[in-house]
């Protein structure tokens, strides 16, 4: 990797200040995407600001009808959290399927969603469960957070503090992993929430997206059969050696039906 200056601030303000002062600063949360990127010399930030010792970014807690997960909470903590497992088992199971155990021991929810990898799992949870993202400046609705390929609604230097997931009536996440990287080729979160049915798809497009036709069909009849004939357009879906757009479109249907079946119990 290229040389950079490493910072380990003790407060959110100091982190923001370090970022602001840097020529090209990058935040490091768990580092599980950033460090591989740096090792491959695909990025050359002047400064890396590690949030590890910033207080207030940890912890999983119940707040009313929501589960609030601190930005620096690791995937393994979410997967093991009794609070999460009781309230939103789909979220625990999603976290338990990210990367591998060592990635889950370091990688964080904040790092994952800020990176906005089109094949990451968490975006499906943020959008599919209708979450809101709290930053050091504001609150962003989950539906508005992901704006494109590796793009989010965050402003320059804005730091995610926590993610709040409303507890759904029922939900499930099913993914079809890339056989090599084990990222999602297609991952679908289906949730029956207070604000309606949500179907969010990660891995298939530039960014996580919802499938309105499925949501409508499921609102009337929450069963796999209800969406059996809902076709997903392959236009604008990703293509790579592991999956064509056509195959991805097909998998969206299969994963969605399996998620519905799992959520319906």
């Amino acid at each position: 990797m290229y040389a950079f200056n490493y910072h380990r601030p003790d407060t959110l303000e100091a982190a923001a200040a370090a970022l602001a002062a840097a020529e090209d600063g990058r935040v490091m949360a768990g580092g599980q995407t950033l460090i591989p990127t740096l090792k491959q010399r695909l990025a050359s930030p002047s400064d890396v600001v590690d949030l590890a010792t910033v207080p207030g970014l940890g912890g999983v807690r119940r707040e009313g009808d929501a589960i609030v997960v601190g930005a620096m909470v690791r995937h393994a903590e979410v997967a093991a959290s009794a609070e999460v497992r009781a309230a939103i088992p789909a979220l625990a199971s999603l976290a338990d399927g990210i990367g591998d155990p060592q990635v889950r021991n370091c990688g964080t929810i904040g790092g994952s969603i800020v990176n906005a990898d089109p094949a990451a799992d968490y975006p499906a949870a943020v959008v599919g469960l209708g979450a809101t993202v709290r930053t050091d400046r504001r609150t962003i609705v989950g539906d508005d957070f992901f704006t494109g390929l590796f793009e989010t609604a965050l402003d320059e230097g804005e730091i995610v503090v926590s993610v709040s997931f409303p507890v759904p009536r029922r939900a499930a996440y099913v993914k079809f992993p890339n056989p090599a990287s084990r990222y999602a080729v297609v991952g679908v979160m289906v949730a029956d929430t207070a604000s309606g049915i949500r179907v969010a798809v990660t891995g298939a497009g530039d960014s996580v997206f919802r499938v309105g036709a499925m949501e409508t069909a499921l609102a009337g009849n929450f069963s796999a059969d209800a969406i059996r004939n809902v076709a997903v357009s392959q236009d604008a879906l990703n293509e790579d050696i592991h999956a064509s757009a056509e195959y991805r479109a097909h998998l969206v249907g299969v994963m969605a039906r399996r998620a519905v079946a799992a959520a319906a119990g």
Binding site: Y6, R8, G31, Q32, I35, P36, K39, D50, A52, A76, P101, Q102, V103, N105, C106
Partner: peptide, 20 residues
């Protein structure tokens, strides 16, 4: 893979300074 504070991690995906 090594253990850092009791958890298994990939030592190639952690900076030495992070293990301070």
């Amino acid at each position: 893979v090594v253990h850092v504070d009791g958890r298994s991690v990939k030592a190639c995906t952690m900076l030495a300074v992070q293990a301070e």
